[in-house]
Design a protein around this nucleic acid. Sequence first.
DNA 1: TTAAGTGCAAAGGCTTTGCGGTGCC
DNA 2: GGCACCGCAAAGCCTTTGCACTTAA
Lengths: 142, 142
Amino acid sequence: MERFIDRCRQEGLKVTPQRIAIYQVLMGSRNHPSADTVYREMTGTHPTISFDTVNRTLLTFAGIGVINTVESYSGSRRFDTETEPHHHVHCVKCGRISDFNDLEIDALKVPERITREFDIIGHRMVVSGICTECGKKMMRDK
Amino acid sequence: MERFIDRCRQEGLKVTPQRIAIYQVLMGSRNHPSADTVYREMTGTHPTISFDTVNRTLLTFAGIGVINTVESYSGSRRFDTETEPHHHVHCVKCGRISDFNDLEIDALKVPERITREFDIIGHRMVVSGICTECGKKMMRDK
DNA sequence: TTAAGTGCAAAGGCTTTGCGGTGCC
DNA sequence: GGCACCGCAAAGCCTTTGCACTTAA
């Protein structure tokens, strides 16, 4: 939290109660929330905050690297509170995203043809599949 | 084309002039178009087609696996005409997506913890970076 | 003090839905 | 002839923008 405040100051961002509250919610959730999810998680404890502030703050945080935006297959923008390199599994049915780590994948090199054409920032494995819950649901529906 | 028509019949889809036209446009473009891009590519040759038909048809095609939807970081849904497994590089500035192939990456195994939790469909490396053009542009703007 | 941030409201994109008319099978 | 499909229009999300008020520094 100290470090978050320092980070804001360092970036010339004001440390407002809203930003602190949003940051706390983010640190408390190990998911990949949308702006709306974060907003609804806060309405209980911070009834006066507006959705716009949440959304704008998330974009601001993503801009300074406190969080990241996540690749998605549809719908609304998702954020990631885990800023260390890692990998994702998407459930194609419910959209749930899970993290995983894998040193072998981390160590992979991108082909030279690509490094010539792009300044590489990072890479991530994106796995798609069907999660256990959705699998069960599909069995029931059949 | 023959195979496309067979595929439609097989799936119980009617073979309409619109679907044929959209399929032709898709096969002619090696990009990762949005519905709007496909639509605008067609207005010259097929002035009477509606955006909705294009959009719905793309979703239909994606549903039967003729094309795929692509992971994206914002904005509109993008489609992929390449249905064989391959990998992607995203330019974080302009949103351009390039394909690449890599047998080593193809062969990677997903950790067992994940295979227990998900029925895996496939995996893809998603690289992010800045493309040459955007790099130049940033130099000029500085 | 003042520039940045907030909240509200409206506008803007993109996607989805409903429905009457059309055309493939 | 029936049912899927098309085109149009409206509605629904989500995101972005503009502006006046507030507040951290």
